[in-house]
Structures are given as structure tokens and as C-alpha cells.
């Protein structure tokens, strides 16, 4: 017991300084591929190597859809490899809300130091949920920022949804959303929650959470690192700027087969 206390004191504070200071520790982020213009003679064969269809060719350019990328690094190898960008502040305000495409404003300052979060697993493989769970550990320590996890949506301001939204979880998700008191925000975490990824749409699940309930903030990645989820919570309370990918810098909607042909 004494040893435990002493060794704890000797270890000193290990908690990250983010968001006051960017965390540069190695391995905190898997990174994202960056799209590029196709040079003459470059067929862009790297696009075929992408298993989730996150890469597309259009207008002599390779586009990256962060909603689908699962960081498999297949496009990071070989002669025609894409460049990869580090960082983790990926959370973007969704543009896909049904009513008029308007974006949700951040929550008022009343929530700045007290935000209660309910996590719903909507068919997750365990990866995203694992990353969400890391927020409670001493390194990320979300409590220092005033984010708390609660076991019931009745006490929550934020619903974090992981997983593609399977049919079995559709009712539960709808009920959880209904049970949230207003003002409320939904954060979809992970490629599956944003687009269905490799799972959906299919006979058993939808193409992402937004086809079940309105999504306010999107966190790409498969799974996203804990910092990206922390960033999303900061964005939800207006304490950080959202990433710009949703506005169209790197983003491209997944075109149908015909569009892909014409783009090629």
C-alpha cells in the first residue's frame, strides 16, 4: 500500500496537456491519407488497393473519404503510395442533418465544465468502444475537462454512438435519442457510425447512424484515437474549432460506379 502510493507519487502526473498544448507523443494517432492530383501517366492504381472504398478518382485527382477510411495502410506502401498526415483534431460538424442542411451550433457555455455523456454501442466491433473507454483512464482523463459518463440517457447531454447502427440496435438507439433532454447533441464515432463502412448498408445494418437519428458531430477513423473523440467533445461545447474536412477540403462523396468511370 505504501509502495503503491510512493510509486504513484514517483510517477508524477502523466496526464496529457491537451487541449492546452498539442500532444506530440508517438503513436497517439494513426494518421490519415491525403489525396493528391494525378500526374500524367499515373493511373492512380492505388485506389484499387483500398478495401473500404475510401479512395476515389475524379477530375484527375485522388480523393479521400475520411468517413470510410480505416487506416489499413495499404495505400501507404508501394511506389505510388499516398502521403499520410498526422494529427487527430478530426471532429467535424455534420452537414447531413435532415432539416435544411444547417449545422448545429455548439452547446452553451453552461455545459463547458459539466457535460454528461451516454455511450451507445450500436453494433460496434469493440475497437471504437475501446478508444472511447480510454477517455476515462489517467492519461486522457476526460473528467478534468468536465466530461462525465452516465449510465442513462435521461441524465446525458451528449449521445456518443459507435458502430454502424445494426437493425437490432435501431429501436434502442431511437429510444435513447428520445430520452435525451434538450439541448442534446449526437456524436457519431468511427467509420462504421459515419458510413456503415464495410458492414453497411446490408441486410442487417444501416449505412451509418445518421440514417437512424440526426448526427451533429462526426469523428472519422476506424477507430479514431481518443484525442479525436476528446476533440469532438470540445467541439460540442464550443471549446475547440471543428476540423474542416466536412466542408470539402479533402472530402468527396462516394460516387456511384458510373461517376467513377467517368472520373477515371
Amino acid at each position: 500500500m505504501t509502495q503503491w502510493v510512493l510509486s504513484g507519487l514517483a510517477a508524477r502526473v502523466r496526464t496529457t496537456r491537451y487541449p492546452a498544448r498539442q500532444d506530440q507523443s508517438p503513436g497517439v494517432s494513426p494518421g490519415f491519407p491525403v489525396g493528391r492530383a494525378l500526374a500524367d501517366g499515373d493511373r492512380g492504381a492505388v485506389v484499387e488497393r483500398c478495401p473500404t472504398g475510401a479512395l476515389t478518382r475524379r477530375d484527375r485527382r485522388i480523393w479521400v473519404d475520411p468517413r470510410r477510411c480505416v487506416h489499413c495502410y495499404r495505400c501507404a506502401r508501394g511506389d505510388d503510395a499516398l502521403e499520410w498526415q498526422q494529427g487527430y483534431e478530426w471532429a467535424a460538424v455534420a452537414t447531413s442533418r435532415p432539416a435544411g442542411e444547417e449545422r448545429t451550433p455548439p452547446l452553451s457555455s453552461a455545459f463547458a465544465r459539466s457535460l454528461h455523456v451516454r455511450v451507445v454501442d450500436a453494433g460496434d466491433c469493440g475497437a471504437c468502444l475501446h478508444e472511447v473507454k480510454q477517455l476515462a483512464n489517467p492519461y486522457y482523463n476526460a473528467h478534468r475537462l468536465g466530461f462525465f459518463f452516465t449510465p442513462t440517457p435521461r441524465h446525458a447531454d451528449i449521445l456518443i454512438v459507435v458502430g454502424p447502427g445494426t437493425d437490432q440496435m435501431r429501436t434502442a438507439l431511437e429510444k435513447a435519442y428520445t430520452a435525451l433532454p434538450t439541448p442534446r447533441r449526437v456524436i457519431a464515432v468511427g467509420a462504421c457510425a459515419l458510413s456503415g463502412s464495410v458492414f453497411g448498408p446490408s441486410f442487417a445494418c444501416s449505412d451509418g447512424v445518421r440514417s437512424i437519428i440526426p448526427v451533429d458531430i462526426e469523428v472519422p477513423g476506424g477507430p479514431p484515437p481518443p484525442f479525436a473523440i476528446l476533440h469532438a467533445l470540445l467541439v460540442a461545447t464550443g471549446r475547440a474549432q471543428p476540423a474542416g474536412w466536412a466542408a470539402g477540403t479533402q472530402w468527396a462523396a462516394r460516387p456511384g460506379p458510373a461517376a467513377e468511370e467517368s472520373g477515371a
Binding site: V120, T152, P153, R154, M169, T171, A172, L173, K175, A176, T178, A179
Partner: peptide, 10 residues
């Protein structure tokens, strides 16, 4: 007025 939170069961 909405249904009570029931843990999301059907």
C-alpha cells in the same frame, strides 16, 4: 411527453 427510458429494450 415521451415513453420512459427503459434501457432501450423493444
Amino acid at each position: 411527453r415521451e415513453a420512459h427510458w427503459d434501457g432501450g429494450v423493444r
